[in-house]
Structure formats: structure tokens, C-alpha cells
């Protein structure tokens, strides 16, 4: 039986999604390495449930203007959940515009806490069922890059991100 994380990373690889991992303390370095500038993003405390991740020591412009968003190549957001068997990310829709930051860019860098990796779709939907019933709320189950086959062959980056990179923040030992 593969671990949740191993199966998640295997699924991401099959989707063409790149992965890096980091300890919490080195997150900013990992973000810096993962982005292609110009980069915009969201203060991660809001999405990843941690207060320390301000991204101030990175090239990422946090809470950009709409024009800066349109000119950016990379958008950095948190991901609420990972789904082991599909390599999916569950992205929330916050008032800080995480939806715009993950969508209106060429490259999406998603930061995910290792403990938020769910084993499978069944567990992830059960979790969302619970959350939605408590608080309303919306989410995107995003799996790999945006894609289309409508132009005669499979092309990544139809309307959404052409590239996706996941940074897994490892649990402290």
C-alpha cells in the first residue's frame, strides 16, 4: 500500500505537474525557486491555514492590482486539499481572489500542507460535503493544467494555467 503522499506525487507526475517539497521554515526559498517572474500571489496564511507565510522574502507581489495580475506569469496560492488517487488540488475561492490568482496566469504554484493530502476522491468529497454544509463555500477540484483538445490536438493552457507546480510543505518531525 503506497502512502497517500507517494500516490499523490505519482499522480501529479503522470499529469505533468512538477512537485517540490520543503520544510515550513524554507518555504520562501521553495517559492522563489518555483515561480517564473513576474509573479503574483496571496498571503498564504489565508489559504493554507498558517500565519507565517507572508512571502515577503520572495519575488511574489502579494495582493496585486488587476493589471499586475494580467501581466503576471505565475500565480501563487494555497491549496486546501490534495487528492491522492487523482493528483487533484482543492482550491478555495476567497475574498482575497485566490480564484483569480490561480486562473488568470500561465503558471500556477500551489502550496499544500502534507497533512492535507486525502487518500482518495471519496474522502475528499466527504470532507467537502462536511465543510460546505457547515459554511456554504465553494471549491475547485483542479487536476493538472488547463487543457483542450478542441483545436485538433491536446494542448495545455486553454483558458487557465498551462503549467502547475505543487510545493508540499512537510510536517515537522
Amino acid at each position: 500500500m503506497k502512502s497517500k503522499r507517494a500516490s499523490f506525487e505519482g499522480a501529479l507526475e503522470a499529469l505533468g505537474v512538477t512537485v517540490s517539497s520543503t520544510a515550513e521554515s524554507d518555504l520562501e526559498a521553495a517559492v522563489t525557486e518555483a515561480v517564473t517572474e513576474p509573479a503574483v500571489g496571496i498571503a498564504l496564511g489565508e489559504t493554507a491555514g498558517d500565519e507565517a507565510f507572508s512571502l515577503t522574502e520572495t519575488p511574489v507581489t502579494v495582493d496585486p492590482t488587476p493589471v499586475a495580475l494580467r501581466e503576471a506569469t505565475t500565480g501563487v496560492t494555497g491549496a486546501e486539499l490534495g487528492i491522492g488517487d487523482y493528483g487533484s488540488l482543492v482550491l478555495s475561492m476567497t475574498e482575497e481572489a485566490s480564484e483569480l490568482l490561480s486562473l488568470f496566469v500561465e503558471r500556477h504554484v500551489a502550496i499544500l500542507h502534507e497533512e492535507d493530502i486525502q487518500p482518495d476522491m471519496d474522502a475528499a468529497v466527504a470532507e467537502l460535503d462536511e465543510r460546505f454544509n457547515e459554511t456554504g463555500g465553494s471549491a475547485i477540484i483542479a487536476t493538472g493544467p488547463s487543457a483542450t483538445a478542441d483545436m485538433g490536438a491536446l494542448v495545455n493552457g486553454a483558458h487557465g494555467a498551462r503549467e502547475v507546480h505543487v510545493i508540499i510543505v512537510e510536517e515537522e518531525a
Binding site: 487523482y86 467537502l128 487536476t143
Partner: peptide, 10 residues
């Protein structure tokens, strides 16, 4: 296996 996006919008 799954499409790129399953939007669950409330």
C-alpha cells in the same frame, strides 16, 4: 480519469 476542473460553486 477526471477533467482538469470540477468547479463546486455555491
Amino acid at each position: 480519469d477526471i477533467t482538469s476542473y470540477v468547479s463546486l460553486l455555491t
